[in-house]
């Protein structure tokens, strides 16, 4: 079989880490797959570029905001040079482009395993209550607002505290109308409109990563609880768990939406009332995806294997109580790696 070449984005393993390095590590650990991994970066300082044990070669891409044609042309250039067979996109802002151009990429020999644009939009923060109702999962009261007047109306109906969230990223808790207005302006300035206002539900933060097969089935999933987070709210240590309500929510989501590809459910468990609230559905692998691989559920490899018709474990399982700890490390290398990325947009 021809060597499989897989492009992986989100290789910014920084204080707000992307999922890419964990995905590359997962793919490399499936030695039977024998994949060559190409890092797809947006900046010469994304640490993944310098992790040559994970990425056989790295390229920079134009930002998705520069437009689809330029983005597509760059991917085709990389394909011509490296024989790219697959891309696993891992950033929310680039997913609409990959979904839009999935057919064109496929015609050029670059495969993806992604939801349709309709499915992608359905799980957006602004559509979450509608999506959750379809598969029967509770969500906190949520309003989509585009003005301060709408914001105040939403906060009045919800009651304080509320979460003020950007359409793609960021969430701030606000305890007063003044605080809510300040957060609303900050989120709108950075991420644009609309802004999401959501009821603050108290309970345990539980997360689940999984891959839907596009036919209503789940290829595998792993759930965890964050034990500690960074000042940006990113997980630093965590523990695996098995929660029936969370597993059921994942099964209902993939079955109800026929989700195709990776996803993360962010939920809050209200133990007092034995209810699970769905807070967000991320349409991609989360940054902690390697945790699943480390406990025996290699979701990136499962996804690729399923799409290629290679043998897979039909019921990958893991133990509750496995521990995850991040740490910092340093790479010392030659300046010419940085130089190559800056001048040529790629490095071996």
């Amino acid at each position: 079989m021809k060597e499989l070449v897989i492009g992986v984005s989100g290789i910014n393993a920084a204080d707000n880490p992307g999922p890419g390095t964990g995905i590359a590590r997962s793919l490399k650990e499936d030695t039977d797959l024998g994949a060559r991994i190409i890092g797809l970066a947006y900046d010469a300082l994304e640490p993944g570029i310098y992790m040559d044990w994970l990425f056989d070669r790295s390229f920079t891409l134009p930002y998705p905001s520069t437009g689809g044609e330029e983005f597509l042309d760059r991917l085709l250039e990389i394909q011509a040079s490296e024989g790219l067979d697959w891309v696993i996109p891992n950033l929310d802002v680039e997913l609409p482009l990959y979904i839009k151009y999935a057919d064109k990429l496929s015609e050029a020999g670059i495969r993806t395993f992604l939801p349709s644009m309709r499915q992608f939009r359905l799980r957006g923060k602004d559509k979450l209550p509608e999506a959750a109702a379809r598969f029967g999962v509770d969500v906190p009261k949520t309003f989509v607002v585009s003005s301060e007047e709408e914001l105040y109306g939403a906060c009045e109906q919800i009651g304080y505290p509320v979460f003020v969230k950007g359409a793609y990223y960021q969430a701030h808790r606000a305890y007063t109308s003044l605080e809510a207005a300040a957060k609303f302006r900050a989120v709108a300035a950075e991420w644009g409109y609309p802004v999401i206002v959501q009821q603050s539900v108290t309970g345990e933060d539980l997360n689940l990563v999984g891959v839907g097969d596009g036919e209503g089935g789940l290829l595998g999933s792993v759930a965890m609880k964050k034990i500690s987070t960074t000042s940006l709210g990113k997980v630093w240590s965590a523990v695996t768990l098995k929660n029936e309500l969370l597993d059921e929510a994942a099964r209902r989501f993939v079955a109800g939406v026929r989700w195709r590809g990776p996803f993360e459910l962010e939920c809050i468990l209200d133990r007092r009332n034995d209810r699970l609230f769905l807070i967000e559905i991320n349409p991609r692998f989360p940054a902690w995806s390697y945790f699943a691989t480390g406990v025996g559920v290699n979701l990136p490899a499962l996804m690729i294997r399923r799409a290629l018709g290679l043998p897979i474990d039909p019921r990958p399982d893991y133990e509750a109580g496995r521990f995850f700890m991040r740490y910092t490390s340093e790479i010392v290398t030659e300046l010419d790696r940085f130089q190559c990325v800056m001048t040529q947009g790629s490095v071996r």
Partner: peptide, 17 residues
């Protein structure tokens, strides 16, 4: 609840220790 001899307790459904 998973109960260890050294007094460490782990709830596998919530991750609480």
């Amino acid at each position: 609840l998973s109960v260890k001899d050294d007094g460490f307790l782990f709830d596998p459904s919530t991750g609480d220790t």
